[in-house]
């Protein structure tokens, strides 16, 4: 059976990202967050308030870690363009039987596959660490949509960096700093309360990851799929803007860095 060009590229992208470093980044680190932070804070934070009553910290944390998979996978997807440009592979691919759009779809699909796979593994690990998640067919579909949109947003964001940033040091520094802020200035690890500092709260409010986590938490921890639609709409709108920008910039990107 003849595979579409973008699927062939996706297969290639998956294959080249199966190295231990990427796997550790995508699965090992969030698994450690879930296991170590979940277990450690479970003793300190006995419960977190929720719309249906208090939930355990690990139940609160799990959707945060799952939402973060969109950020991690988006970084891997967008980062591929930078690496392929840097090492000459982008040009090699473009003199092969591919169109530019195939390459773009290949990295977007890679990111979504990684995001969904990583989230599934994190959900399984969360179950193992006694999180109580509401897994129903409707919730699974809604979570998949949330992750797909969220991952597309972060892939677009990192794609823009990959197009614009020339130096490897600058790219690494920007992505690492951004990662830190997006991860920790979000409701992934802790609830936002009236005691949260105003500046931090303001950053959390403009952090796109927050909306992915809100949506994932509404679905998995609170079993309130309708409530997830609000944050999902926010992230959808932001994604459309950034995807449009990324596609426009990508269309003119030079093959080398």
């Amino acid at each position: 059976m003849k595979l579409p060009s973008f699927v062939r590229l996706t297969v290639r992208n998956i294959r080249v990202n199966m190295d231990p470093g990427t796997m550790m980044f995508m699965l090992g680190l969030p698994a450690l967050y879930l296991a170590v932070l979940g277990v450690m804070f479970e003793g300190l934070i006995t419960s977190v308030p929720g719309p249906n009553g208090p939930i355990s910290y690990i139940t609160f944390l799990a959707p945060g870690i799952i939402g973060m998979q969109a950020l991690t996978a988006g970084n891997i997807g967008g980062g591929m363009l930078w690496a392929d440009r840097r090492w000459g592979m982008f040009e090699q691919i473009l003199v092969g039987p591919f169109r530019r759009i195939d390459y773009l779809m290949g990295i977007m699909l890679l990111a979504v596959i990684f995001s969904v796979t990583g989230s599934t593994i994190m959900a399984a690990l969360a179950f193992y660490t006694s999180a109580h998640l509401f897994v129903t067919p409707a919730n699974i579909i809604l979570l998949f949509i949330t992750l797909a949109i969220g991952t597309t947003f972060f892939s677009s964001l990192f794609l823009i960096f990959a197009v614009k940033i020339k130096s490897m040091n600058a790219y690494n520094t920007i992505t690492i700093v951004l990662f830190f802020f997006l991860d920790f200035a979000s409701p992934s690890f802790y609830p936002i309360t009236s005691k949260t500092p105003v500046a931090l709260k303001a950053f959390i409010d403009i952090n796109p990851l927050s909306y992915i986590v809100y949506s994932a938490r509404d679905i998995l921890s609170y079993n309130q799929p309708y409530s997830s639609l609000g944050p999902l709409l926010v992230i959808f709108i932001i994604t459309m803007v950034f995807l449009g920008l990324a596609v426009k910039l990508y269309g003119n990107v030079q093959t080398g860095v």
């Binding site: 062939r8 290639r12 080249v16 090492w87 000459g88 040009e91 090699q92 039987p97």
Partner: peptide, 24 residues
Amino acid sequence: PQDLTTDEDLKAVENLRMVARFYD
């Protein structure tokens, strides 16, 4: 190309198979 584009983390045959898959 001038640049070395082969993936260091793959075996030689894996790199070649990857190109073969590019062309289906």
